[in-house]
Design a binder for these strands. Structure first.
Lengths: 175, 175
DNA sequence: CCTCATTATGCAACTTGTTGCATATACTAG
DNA sequence: CTAGTATATGCAACAAGTTGCATAATGAGG
């Protein structure tokens, strides 16, 4: 059910094509929701069938036509309803942590290399989020409520990555 | 693919019934892997068919028979292979954070109540993990490698919950 | 006495997410 | 000149996860 609302949320902010939504889920919303383009295109079709979206085909000569999706009144209603329902805590399924439960079978060097790769990735992500923070949210006190909550979601992303990095430090020290 | 290895990991530690595995995924491994009993029983059947497990039916007169699953040599081999492959980072899909992207549709009181409910849950979990830490890992320096890595996975759980609580503090202060 | 929680297993239907493939053009780097 | 990246969409098959239901006995609490 929830990808549906992730798309409605994003389109509620501003209309977009499937391609643009894919990018948002990778970038600005990467911290909050992930989905592949295949999944997104499929779900957009369903939402259109369900009458929660409108679509406008923007013709292009050089590239495939863009389909610009826009949330409509029914979509807004559905979204507003969902937003005020309590959300489920997401399930945890982390294969790397899982491997640590069979640590006696693990090659220490392979694991160290994996940690380093992850650390690089976490640092890259953190730098990205920090850049968004500086660009859009340098004065969080003055933000309208809408953006204040988005800012707090971003803060969650930043704190989460800092925790991963701190944990990686503990692990490297212990090994 | 990965529930398969989660079960092999857990059975690699010690043989168990589906019921016990369900409990482990809720308790000691809750931080690392979640799965419902339905999913677990189904997957145990597949692993048995694939020849990675053995099963022994323990008769009980008062209750349904227990089926005790044990990992076999083929299972150990498969697990050892998987453990040394790099793991994928899990996808992020958090409905609560998602809602914050449509913050203008949100009832502030409903959200505050939700935050408080989550905070209570995070605190409860944290207390549980801390209890495990004290019981089993009071002298982490002296642990054999196998348990040292499990301890570090638990540390990750503790740090993750602390971060959620710190974030909740930031949110409450901001609102 | 009755209901609820615990132990213990599982099927069936459904929804969600992944993987592999396909198409088509323009621009950039080597 | 050729390979790769970016734009832009999508189908089909498959794997994984959820939800609802079913069975069956014991013990505890009201």
């Amino acid at each position: 059910m929830a990808l549906k609302y992730a798309l409605l949320c994003s389109l509620h902010e501003s209309s977009a094509t499937g391609y643009e939504l894919t990018q948002r889920f990778r970038e600005r919303m990467g911290n909050v929701w992930n989905a592949s383009h295949q999944q997104i295109y499929r779900e957009l079709g369903k939402l259109l069938d369900a009458g929660l979206l409108e679509v406008e085909t923007v013709h292009q000569t050089d590239r495939p036509d863009r389909k610009l999706y826009r949330i409509n009144a029914a979509g807004e209603t559905a979204l507003a309803e969902w937003v005020n329902l309590p959300a489920k805590r997401p399930a945890v399924r982390d294969p790397m942590l899982l491997k640590m439960f069979a640590g006696d079978l693990m090659d220490p060097n392979a694991f160290s290399r994996e940690l380093v790769r992850n650390r690089v990735e976490w640092e890259r992500q953190l730098a990205e989020y920090r850049a968004i923070e500086e660009e859009f949210f340098s004065h969080p006190q003055q933000l309208p409520r809408h953006y204040q909550l988005q800012y707090l979601a971003l803060r969650r992303g930043i704190m989460g990555l800092q925790t991963w990095l701190a944990w990686a430090g503990e692990v490297e020290e212990a090994l």
